[in-house]
């Protein structure tokens, strides 16, 4: 537990003033889920991913997605070597423990699909050979707000594969000042001290499942799920997978908060990150506000 707090402290050194988002990112990692960061360029997405990799001693790779990228660019390809006169397999960047998929919405749906499938299956099949991905395996994908030109918006079914979506946003003025004074944070990220080994992380995520959730809490989760389904401001309600994800994320959050049982506050803390990107509004308007309004209207204690 202390290790977790320490890890958080380390990452906070390079991602300034974003404690909540950091905690969510960590929660996502603990809950064995993939993370989507939605932001304008230059907000520190890369730094965050990099720092996480350092602190947990994860093997780290970064892929910049573009519209002319092919699935093979991610998964790997057999390349003819003119020197040896035979084909050798070049593993794609996906074979790593932490993959930063930058601007995922710039890639074609086909390429996006290849990555997302790998994320889901945690294995890759190339030329008929199935190869497992390393463990742990996390994808931190970033995307610019989807209404930018020349992008392919991730379909909802794909978004469902990300446990959470967070957005870092502009830094607070005083933080920005510190940032300006502090020099290149990306460089500093390289110098972060490792806190927990990747094996330690696997063990920690094992503990998440042991966090207890009472019947009343499950009931609350169910009511939240139901509320998204009956609310006709949304095109469709949350899937059962989202429900499981919500519960798992809440458990991880409880663990990070130092409890061995989950409370409604845990659900509410991860709710926006888990639910927002899976919902879309029927008639425009802010999904974020609507999702948040559900928290206000769905009774925590059954009445």
């Amino acid at each position: 537990m202390q290790a977790l707090t320490k890890a958080l402290g380390e990452v906070a050194k390079v991602v300034l003033g974003k404690e909540d988002q950091l905690k969510l990112a960590l929660t996502c990692l603990m809950a064995n889920g993939h993370l989507l960061i939605e932001d304008l360029p230059g907000m520190g997405k890369t730094t965050l991913a990099h720092a996480l990799a350092r602190v947990f001693q994860l093997e780290y790779r970064r892929v910049q997605f573009t519209s002319d990228m092919l699935p093979a660019d991610i998964l790997g390809v057999s390349v003819f070597n003119p020197n040896t006169q035979d084909f050798t397999l070049r593993e794609g960047p996906v074979f790593t423990q932490l993959l930063l998929a930058d601007e995922i919405n710039r890639a074609t749906p086909k390429t996006q699909g290849a990555l997302l499938e790998a994320m889901e299956e945690r294995q890759v099949t190339l030329d008929g050979v199935t190869r497992p991905l390393p463990r742990p395996f996390f994808v931190v994908a970033t995307q610019n707000p989807s209404d930018q030109a020349g992008t392919f918006v991730l379909p909802e079914s794909q978004l469902d594969r990300f446990l959470m979506r967070i957005s870092l946003g502009y830094p607070a003025p005083e933080v920005e000042l510190a940032l300006l004074a502090g020099g290149d944070l990306r460089e500093q990220a390289r110098s972060l001290k490792p806190v927990i080994s990747s094996d330690g992380l696997v063990k920690l995520s094992g503990m998440v499942d042991k966090v207890r959730a009472s019947h009343e809490l499950l009931d609350y989760v169910q009511r939240l799920m139901d509320a998204t389904r009956t609310d006709d401001r949304f095109v469709a309600g949350l899937s059962p997978r989202a429900g499981l994800g919500l519960l798992k994320a809440a458990r991880a959050w409880a663990l990070i908060s130092g409890r061995d049982y989950a409370v409604p506050e845990d659900i509410q803390a991860v709710w926006a990150a888990v639910a927002e990107h899976r919902l879309s509004a029927r008639q425009g308007g802010s999904v974020s506000a609507m999702t948040q309004s559900l928290l206000q209207s769905v009774p925590v204690v059954r009445r």
Binding site: V263, P264, E265, L294, L295, S297, V298, P299, V300, V301
Partner: peptide, 9 residues
């Protein structure tokens, strides 16, 4: 009051 208040809130 919102019905969605937790006991803590």
């Amino acid at each position: 009051l919102d019905p969605g208040l937790t006991p803590q809130q």
